[in-house]
Design a protein around this nucleic acid. Structure first.
Lengths: 155, 155
DNA sequence: TAGAAATCGGACAAATATGTCTAATTAAGG
DNA sequence: CCTTAATTAGACATATTTGTCCGATTTCTA
């Protein structure tokens, strides 16, 4: 069970990449190279983000995509909701309307779990993702290791 | 984003149904009717649960499926892992082997979220799901409202 | 105003998840 | 020993997600 869709994963990579880059504006090709997302598909994901108002696009020479808000003001949840919204369980999937808005214990638990995820994602900003890889390493503070400093390609 | 696959949902319904029924052993048809899961597909899901050792099957007249362990001793997680295992993120999906077991901050957060889910599911037993619909209602204690007391069909 | 660089939109293709059906096998009971 | 009721295994069908491609449009620059 993948828990996060490819589409959401790609959208998050793209936004992190945009937030980390020196360049204000980046083309699909640049973002694709920097995040290892298939360019054609990425293009669609970026369009979704654009329609949702998280990024803006500029056609033509010198164009590309850039963030609308600062990385500190954009949450993971916003990105996810823009491309592949988390579906909360609102009423019993079995159709037991016997208990109206009350869920079966099973679906109550499942929905609680989703609420947790939602909350975690709401509480995390893109800016928090621009630091070094892991809290476990101490040598990592030497150099900016993440927000995707990609070597050419793995094959 | 569905967060839990149909397959996992169906497996959980089936196990809850088995745990709640008076009958020890139930056929695919009975479980399908009691959970509103397509019988053909349910059959496969039950086979997965059987291979995983959570339920046993008996062919022929009087046969069917029954739980191996008591409902108090089976967790949501076991059921989910049996049919559609939660995939934790073990190494950076971008292929940044620069930081070995350390994840990018992005994937660290996503994996943390999945760890939360895993923990919730591990801590919840099937037995806990056999009670009345919601903690918010007080009138609900009158009668066993859940573990799926299905009326014929919604259409 | 022409050409180049970019997004936009939609058609199409491939992969995966979900669902259906049927023949084979097993077991109980007359 | 035959019939009936059940799982099992696999082929097939459909739906959804993911990925590719290309022509149309916009925009900058010379």
């Amino acid at each position: 069970m993948a828990m996060f869709s490819q589409t959401a994963e790609y959208a998050l990579r793209a936004v992190v990449h945009l937030a980390s880059g020196e360049e204000e504006s980046q083309t699909v090709g640049q973002i694709a190279a920097g995040t290892r997302v298939p360019a054609g598909y990425l293009s669609k994901v970026l369009q979704s983000l654009s329609r949702a108002g998280l990024i803006t696009s500029q056609r033509g020479i010198g164009g590309g995509f850039r963030l609308v808000k600062a990385a500190q003001e954009t949450s993971l949840l916003e990105v996810i909701q823009a491309v592949d919204p988390i579906q909360r369980i609102r009423n019993c999937p079995l159709g037991l309307d016997a208990h109206g808005a009350n869920l079966c214990p099973l679906h109550k638990r499942l929905d609680d779990a989703m609420a947790l995820i939602e909350e975690q994602c709401r509480a995390t900003t893109i800016a928090e993702l621009l630091e070094a890889p892991s809290p476990r390493t101490k040598a990592a503070s030497e150099e900016k290791l993440c927000a995707f400093p990609l070597t050419p390609a793995p094959e």
